[in-house]
């Protein structure tokens, strides 16, 4: 029977070996350390051993080399763990049983040292629903991309738009980075639109926290609030949002309250697939109202009309202009 200490040392050694890899699951390692104070002590000894090995490298190199030039075939061909049972060494047979048990225990006790690879979702013309393992769902807008990483699928990066419907789980905190903002969620329903360095976060239910280097302090957004952040201009504003407007893009509507025209144009590109150039002088002009986006050209004409602008050019290369008076 294998002692608990030995088991701990096995795990410690495997964590130490995994720590050299980019895919090391540091959160799971943290949990392993927290589980038992002996874990950290065992890990220290293993890591110190490796440290000493590297310190004495010059002295040890020659020795290791001379004894390592053995035919490797016999053991390697039979794969993992084969070196453990080798009758040629009398000593080794004696503890072969322990070693096998060690291998099995290590496999059972810590099946995962590595974080699963990142998943990247990209949409073109149509939105797509993404289901997370915990039952949360994300509706990813057209022409957007979302990367999901982390053992608990809790590290995300968004470019474009998405409506998040996240289940509350006290053990994990979801963080979404988008256009220079970090949005942390505490189980809620909220929408994020990120285009370049311009981000809007609108909360329907629950609460989210938004952080950025350029914000003096984290901003907490409650239900019914929205944040408009513009990294280029260095501005962030919190304003009320109407629940029925949040994520309304899914039902073919875009609603705005005092939104800059450049942002409306970017949304039309994303949601209605219509390209429109906005001259610099008009980019900051404000728009309030609702656009129906099932027909992109029609939505653009509506926008031009409401704003008192002229739509020039032709399909595929529209341009909004200030009409000559």
């Amino acid at each position: 029977m294998k002692s608990a200490d030995d088991q701990i040392l096995d795990e410690a050694a495997r964590w130490h070996i995994a720590s050299g890899d980019d895919a090391m699951d540091w959160d799971a390692f943290t949990q392993w350390l927290e589980a038992d104070p002996r874990h950290a002590a065992a890990y220290d000894e293993v890591a110190l051993t490796d440290g000493l090995l590297q310190e004495h490298r010059a002295d040890l190199d020659a020795v290791a080399e001379s004894s390592a030039e053995l035919p490797a075939g016999a053991e390697d061909s039979s794969g993992e763990g084969a070196d453990i049972i080798r009758p040629a060494f009398g000593k080794r047979l004696r503890w072969a049983g322990f070693a096998i048990a060690a291998t099995l225990a290590a496999v059972l006790a810590i099946p995962q040292f590595m974080v699963p690879a990142a998943q990247v979702y990209e949409t073109t013309g149509a939105a797509r629903e993404i289901a997370l393992e915990d039952g949360s769902t994300i509706m990813l807008a057209p022409r957007s991309s979302l990367t999901v990483e982390g053992r608990h699928q809790d590290q995300m990066a968004l470019s474009g738009g998405a409506l998040f419907d996240i289940r509350h789980d006290p053990d994990r905190q979801l963080t979404i980075s988008a256009g220079g903002l970090q949005i942390s969620d505490i189980g809620t329903r909220f929408d994020v639109q990120a285009q370049d360095k311009r981000v809007r976060v609108s909360v329907v239910e629950g609460k989210v926290e938004v952080r950025s280097d350029s914000l003096a302090a984290p901003v907490r957004l409650a239900a019914g609030k929205g944040l408009s952040y513009d990294a280029a201009a260095g501005t962030a504003a919190v304003a009320p949002v109407r629940a029925e407007d949040v994520g309304a893009w899914r039902s073919g509507r875009l609603s705005y309250d005092d939104a800059p025209l450049a942002l409306v144009a970017a949304d039309l590109r994303r949601y209605a697939g219509v390209e429109v150039a906005v001259p610099d002088a008009l980019r900051g002009r404000r728009f309030s109202g609702t656009l129906v986006i099932s027909d992109g050209d029609a939505a653009l004409r509506d926008l031009a009309q409401v704003m008192g602008l002229r739509l020039s050019g032709s399909a595929g290369a529209w341009r909004l202009e200030q009409p000559a008076r």
Binding site: L9, D10, A13, R14, H16, I17, A18, E45, V46, T49, D50, L53, G79, E80, G81, D83, T103, A106, F113
Partner: peptide
């Protein structure tokens, strides 16, 4: 395999320790 390497290295570290 990768996990075979991991096991070899872990065993080595453990023995040296």
């Amino acid at each position: 395999s990768r996990s075979g390497v991991e096991k070899h290295l872990a065993l080595a570290m453990k023995r040296l320790r």
